[in-house]
Design a protein around this nucleic acid. Structure first.
Ligand code: FES
Ligand code: FES
Lengths: 150, 150
DNA sequence: TAAATAAAGGATATAAGGGTCTTTTATTAG
DNA sequence: CTAATAAAAGACCCTTATATCCTTTATTTA
């Protein structure tokens, strides 16, 4: 009887963790102190081993940097700091999120719109454009200045 | 090595199917011809038994109507036609979708914003408001007039 | 009343996301 | 060189969404 409610989301949990972790790294990493997976996991209350997988994925895609061994950990190169937020989403959740039809139709375009195309596309593209223009460093700066909680 | 890409979505597949099915019913059902699950499944290329579950859920929540037996099927009462799209989303994907934080933080408000709150909220609320103001009959009318593909 | 029809409901199977654990590799300090 | 450290990598398990199948209930027509 009781209808089990789904827990819907725009971004996957992996992607949510990735974004929070990257901001955390941007905030805490210094040349003298790299940020370890353990530290991030503790600080953001994310399962450590799961987080590790995510950080590996980001590293492989050159969105963040890492070194092994004692005092190793994760950090952001100057290049990394200029990576835009949409890139992180793209790597974690695939390139389809901001292209795909809300109703799951094979094509999404004004030529072949689905019933909700008009309603959905305006805001979807709006968010996409914002994330494309926002890089990690900028986001971290705002988070610091506004004292935003991770 | 190869990073398996997730297939992200805003709405669950169940919800996507539900929305398309409801519009289909609105378009095809007449007092003399109720629309069967089989017909919808064929017309929209949705797995029949899966669709049945979804239609049951919509019926239980009084968003659509049904009768059993020969020439039975699904239809929309006048009350059903005034059901707004956000209600369908709410029943299928839960009430949290348009309330939850994009980064999965426990609270979403301008008092305790996450790093992407500003960017995301406009998108989320904008779509939500549109869907709250759009009912099934209106949507079906637009779909018919614009000759939109389901 | 009997047979046919179609939704409702329950049980089960499959796939993917989310999460844990162990081993390996690279780096550094001693 | 060795021990310690921490990321990388791979194997594995759990939960949930998706999908299928089978049985039951309600309705209609003959
Ligand atoms: S076609 Fe569905 S959102 Fe564009
Ligand atoms: S707090 Fe994250 S979207 Fe509002």
């Amino acid at each position: 009887m009781a209808t089990t409610q789904l827990e819907s989301h725009v971004l996957s949990k992996s992607c949510q963790y990735a974004l929070r972790a990257v901001v955390y790294i941007a905030a805490r990493a210094t040349p003298g102190h790299l940020v370890g997976a353990q530290e991030i996991a503790d600080g953001l209350d994310i399962p450590k081993h799961f987080l590790s997988k995510i950080l590996q994925q980001l590293t492989r895609n050159h969105l963040i940097s890492s070194t092994k061994g004692p005092h190793g950990g994760f950090f952001l190169s100057e290049e990394n700091e200029r990576v835009t937020i949409d890139r992180i989403v793209e790597v974690m959740d695939g390139p389809g999120l901001f292209k795909a039809c809300v109703l799951g139709m094979p094509q999404c375009s004004s030529d072949h719109p689905c019933p909700l195309h008009t309603q959905a596309v305006e805001y979807r593209d709006g968010l996409y454009n914002k994330l494309k223009r926002l890089n990690i460093k900028e986001l971290a700066t705002v988070v610091h200045k506004e004292n935003i909680q991770l």
